[in-house]
Design a protein around this nucleic acid. Structure first.
Lengths: 232, 232, 232, 232
DNA sequence: GATGAATGAGCTTTCATTCAT
DNA sequence: TATGAATGAAAGCTCATTCAT
């Protein structure tokens, strides 16, 4: 042991300082800051970073984990408030989900880097932790969703809740990447031929998610009509 | 004239040699090769690369353009064969689309880099060309789709064809990234907690796209019922 | 021989086109343009440049030769008009010389590169031509100066005219370099500690040259007093 | 702390190692060595160079600063020993100054690059430091010179000491450049037409400086005759 | 636990020059 | 004569990571 025995809490505290610094720099710049910058911003030395993270990428995956953590919490809350009626449920979920995305401005910029950049230099252990978090979160929320929406899970697709959530995330990530432009190129977006792509993610996402959910929930309802439906 | 008279076609040929080399290396490695490697693989000098491409990123965006070119051609063909009936149309399109994706194994790995990597160091002109291709392709196919599916475009969403295609692409891109694993990490995928994520993109994508289309096409049909529907 | 037999005049014409292009670009940029740019500006191909110049540096040495050619002509004229009286001669020469410098704005920027850059990659032959031009010009003007200023040349320093002219040039070149600032750094020139260096070449040169000449001409007069001096 | 505790002195030591390596290579080759060569010669890595210098040019400007530092020290000493009598003062200063130049063989080769090469890629801060050193040195020595030579500074030219020193430096720099030949071309110097230029800087400089100073000091004496001059 | 000096592979890019046509 | 495609050495610089202290 070194000068100080570092408790787990102390360790997490220090880790958190690096994460805070990294997050602030990333949000500011729009691109991954260097390790030197992160250390400086955290008021510690470059080498110290490597006492808490195995690679630079691990830092940003940790940030991403924090984002997913929050997202799952918000998701869970949104599911509990889900109305029964498909149309209503879809639009309400879409709105709530969209608000969550806006409340987590680092989520998508980080998620967009996950595959192409972050996972390229991630130690196996960190990779496992990250993916496990996603898996557990998806399964948990998926199961709850299935229990809340009768008819969603069928024999053919027993994990329909999980599937819907996965698709929701995939659509979000893909749409964000398709519509995000490097800052430097915003000017050209107003050229006539590019107008079709000049859709703002912020205005597209809610309708898209609503549509996605509506399709699935409608089908669930068809397979499991409300009990009083026949009475009419 | 130079060492060889280089016609436009000759120029394209040379360009193509670099592109072929770059594609082969990228497919092999799974990550962007260096310019030096590309030149070497093409049997030409490093400096020569820069006679044909302004930056390294331009090379891979050019590859991506080729992929999109093919994709739009395939898309166009798929649209022409679209059955009228929504369920049939959805499943047939999903199958055809999926086959196209499998036939273009470089499309998604490149597309996943577009946002995070390629567009970071792309000359404005190349950026414009790339984005214009996408915009034109989307609009063209979108309009054709609208003309083929009565009721798809409505007053509220006059570009519903374009929108559906954009969502199709976004879902594809997002799903691929959510499910793609770095080669090095495939082993851990079999751990129990990760099983939920051990869905293969290849087995998920068809159903997902079918579902997406089904939702939209069903709604279109509701708004524009077949003429003989009432006769029964 | 090729397509055309090129006469000497034709050859010089073409050469001149490159020189004009090179001069214009150099004046515009303040630094040596690339061979590609020169060729393009001249409306000819890169390779063609090398039919007329052995190296890039030879181009700019040729420009410098043109400048020296003009300088020697102007110098010659100035010498012919030199008054007898030392004070008057010095001030008149200094003024005339300064005007010549201002009329040849490319002379000093090129001369400043001669030693550090141009002569580094100059074929022996071009080097010889350049230096010979200088030597002949100096000797010619020096001898004329000696004949016009009695007492200048002495037994001890038989080439005093030549020497004075060499010193005149050296002082000019050195002063220009000492006082020239890269454009990018003009702002800092106003800082208090730098004020002593914020002398403009344009306002320093005339007095400096006058002073230099005055010292030499006075001494010459002392050694060879005007014939009627004793009569008074 | 790092591998070694690096005090300011330690840092200067390391910096000095790079400077020594750079100086040795420059003297040997006669042209700027590459950063890679400097690092190798210093027995350290390329990247390490950039921990001590922002650009390659900064290295050589630092060397030049060392040279100027020494020059100003020598200058200061020379001034203190200046005899009163102009002719004597001029010749003694010229000799002392010349010896200093010979004792600093890197000064002029570096100074000749300053304008054309070194200042082209110099960070503003380094530029400021360099120019400030020159300004302060000139002013300091100039004022001392004025106090030692009565009559040198007049109402018309209150900074005559500074001016004389600036001219001294300019003449030196210009003369060196006018007479310096690339090593490769020394052979041709013996050709008859080039003989006039085959003056060695080493044999010209002393007389030139003496002459320059003599002119100025004589004039100062005229304006401020020694007190006992009239008594005779 | 913390440091930060050192590393050095790695990168993209430039451009004077050549030479087959 | 003229071309311009091709060259490829050379360069400066960055930055994640290591490790002796």
């Amino acid at each position: 042991m070194g000068r100080h025995v570092m408790t787990d809490a102390g360790r997490d505290l220090r880790r958190g300082e690096f994460l805070d610094a990294a997050r602030a720099l990333f949000r500011e710049r729009g691109e991954l800051p260097s390790v030197a910058e992160i250390a400086k911003a955290a008021g510690l030395a470059k080498g110290t970073v490597y006492l808490y993270f195995a690679t630079k990428e691990e830092i940003f995956v940790a940030l991403l984990e924090e984002e997913f953590e929050k997202l799952f919490v918000a998701l869970s809350a949104a599911l509990e408030e889900l109305p029964e009626e498909p149309a209503l449920a879809s639009s309400q979920f879409a709105r709530s989900y969209t608000e969550t995305l806006f409340a987590q401005p680092d989520l998508l910029p980080l998620a967009a880097l996950a595959n192409a950049v972050l996972e390229q230099n991630l130690p196996t252990e960190a990779m496992r932790r990250f993916k496990t978090q996603l898996a557990v979160g998806l399964v948990t929320a998926g199961k709850r969703l299935e229990s809340l929406v009768p008819g969603l899970a069928t024999e053919e697709s027993p994990q329909a809740g999980e599937t819907l959530l996965l698709r929701t995330y995939a659509m979000t990530l893909g749409l964000w990447q398709a519509l995000a432009y490097p800052k430097a190129l915003l000017p050209i977006l107003n050229e006539p031929t590019l107008l079709p792509l000049n859709r703002q993610f912020t205005s597209e996402i809610e309708g898209t998610i609503e549509s996605l959910w509506r399709g699935e929930l409608d089908r669930a309802r068809l397979q499991n009509p409300p009990e009083d439906a026949g009475k009419i």
